[in-house]
């Protein structure tokens, strides 16, 4: 089965009503608006499911095909059978979650007792984390519990997260943590 493309809203280029008056020589663009031509006209359209609550509303993401390739607009997906185009205030702000200058864009490291973050590379960060994991795991690994039963676990490392991850990410995440022998594996469902 091919992935079913959604029946997107058909956006026409109908602009006659707005442009007809331009012959009068006035700039009739509404303040702060992009009259006549939709800002989404030349955008790539993809569907998504809102990342906030668990109603599972569909949304359409308009991504610029030119320039920086960033999000132009996100609004409710009218062909989604649950929300039928609507979104709440949080869903309506989805664009600002992604296009947000406050986002982290580089791995950061804070050394012991340091007062600040410093940017580091992925390679450096992941290598160092793997080293720490190994040190702590191997130092705290228990083959047996106090009454001699085989347990093959570490209680020296804990992990929490995440209901914000996709299903597929959740699965590989828990597999890695359990393969390491973690038993303190918890997430949002517990709180």
């Amino acid at each position: 089965m091919k992935v079913t493309r959604r029946e997107f809203i058909q956006i026409t280029g109908a602009t006659a009503a707005g442009l007809a008056v331009s012959g009068l020589g006035f700039d009739l663009a509404p303040v702060k608006s992009h009259a006549q031509m939709l800002k989404t006209k030349y955008a790539k359209e993809t569907t998504t499911i809102c990342c906030y609550c668990a109603v599972g509303c569909g949304a359409i993401v308009h991504t610029s095909k030119r320039g920086d390739g960033r999000v132009i607009n996100i609004e409710g997906d009218p062909d989604h059978v649950i929300n039928r185009g609507s979104l709440c205030s949080k869903g309506a702000s989805l664009k600002q979650l992604t296009e947000n200058e406050n986002r982290l864009t580089e791995p950061m490291y804070r050394a012991p007792y340091s007062k600040e973050w410093k940017s580091v590379s992925w390679e450096w960060a992941l290598t160092k984390i793997a080293k720490r994991v190994k040190e702590t795991r191997d130092a705290t690994f228990k083959y047996k519990n106090v009454i001699g039963q085989v347990v093959n676990r570490t209680e020296g490392i804990a992990s929490v997260g995440s209901a914000a991850m996709d299903n597929e990410e959740c699965w590989i995440y828990q597999a890695l943590m359990r393969a390491l022998g973690l038993v303190y594996v918890e997430h949002q469902a517990r709180i």
Binding site: G161, S162, M165, V185, A189
Partner: peptide, 14 residues
């Protein structure tokens, strides 16, 4: 949460 159901199904819980 958007995937608290799925993450519970995949049991990110002790």
């Amino acid at each position: 949460e958007s995937n608290v159901q799925g993450s519970t199904d995949h049991c990110l819980l002790w």
